[in-house]
Design a protein around this nucleic acid. Structure first.
Lengths: 152, 152
DNA sequence: GTGAGTGCAAACGCTTTGCACACAC
DNA sequence: GTGTGTGCAAAGCGTTTGCACTCAC
């Protein structure tokens, strides 16, 4: 009963978040948003999301995943990244702006933020007569996680 | 005669550069390398290179352009960038490391370098136990060039 | 009920690859 | 001559789109 209660409450809350974002509360949208919320800090590609939902027994089309991810990005719920060429990766955009370390060997992503780099970027842009509208900073490293195939 | 002489000398020099890079000196490679050298500071996609060579009357296949660009990148002659999703852009890698301003409206690319940002990146990576193997920093701006469709 | 959302399959843009031919060394 | 390089067409991959059906409101 507690479980059922919990589920209902989370479900209702997610519905509310979708509506606040100006989106109709449909099953695919609810499932995808929940996936990102349950696995906070995670970075998923469209394919990752699709496979994960399939494994959960949810019957969602890949095209819908792409559509929903794009909508979520436009609604500000998710941010899109391009860690690897030719592939988008998404993360919950709740935690404010940050940059990323990306492991060249296993793809592991770690976040960081440095105000000094941010300030310096804006300062340099101003020097060139620009205003920074967006920016991407990826530091490619070799990580030291247990799971990393190139662990030192 | 002077022109012919100039051409021959440049041609010979480019041949030499190709061989130094460990590549056989073939016509497509010569033409592509020359294109980048003549238009230094330029950023080209594979398609750009292909079209430019076609317009010059050179008969080169698109597949060859892709192959040669990749070889040049591996040989260190060119660097590859991903300013836009799903598309590679190349530039002569002669001028040492630098970062880029990219105009969101017209795609214009401008280069910059800041030692302080470089140092800070390495310092932050070290703090996290990483060593930076490569990095990408793109500052997306709205430029003020004559040609820019969104010029202010 | 009505318009927005969905699944499927086909199309898309960029890039890579298989193959027969051509050329650099 | 030999093996690498090339052009062409076909295939690959991530992503988008057209269409008929379905669902949220």
């Amino acid at each position: 009963m507690t479980n059922r209660m919990d589920f209902t409450m989370r479900d209702a809350q997610i519905n509310q978040e979708l509506k606040s974002a100006g989106l109709k509360a449909t099953a695919p949208r609810r499932k995808i948003l929940e996936l990102f919320q349950v696995n906070a800090e995670s970075h998923w590609s469209a394919e990752d999301v699709y496979k994960s939902l399939l494994e959960s027994g949810d019957d969602i089309g890949l095209a819908t995943v792409y559509r929903v991810l794009t909508q979520f990005e436009q609604a500000g719920l998710l941010s899109r990244h391009h860690f690897e060429a030719g592939k988008s990766t998404f993360e919950l955009s709740g935690g404010g702006h940050h940059d990323h370390f990306v492991c060249l060997n296993c793809g592991h992503v770690e976040e960081f933020f440095d105000q000094e780099i941010e300030d310096r970027q804006n300062m340099l842009a101003a020097q060139h007569g620009f205003k920074v509208k967006a920016h991407a900073l990826y530091l490619y490293v070799e990580c030291t996680r247990e799971a990393c195939p190139n662990r030192k």
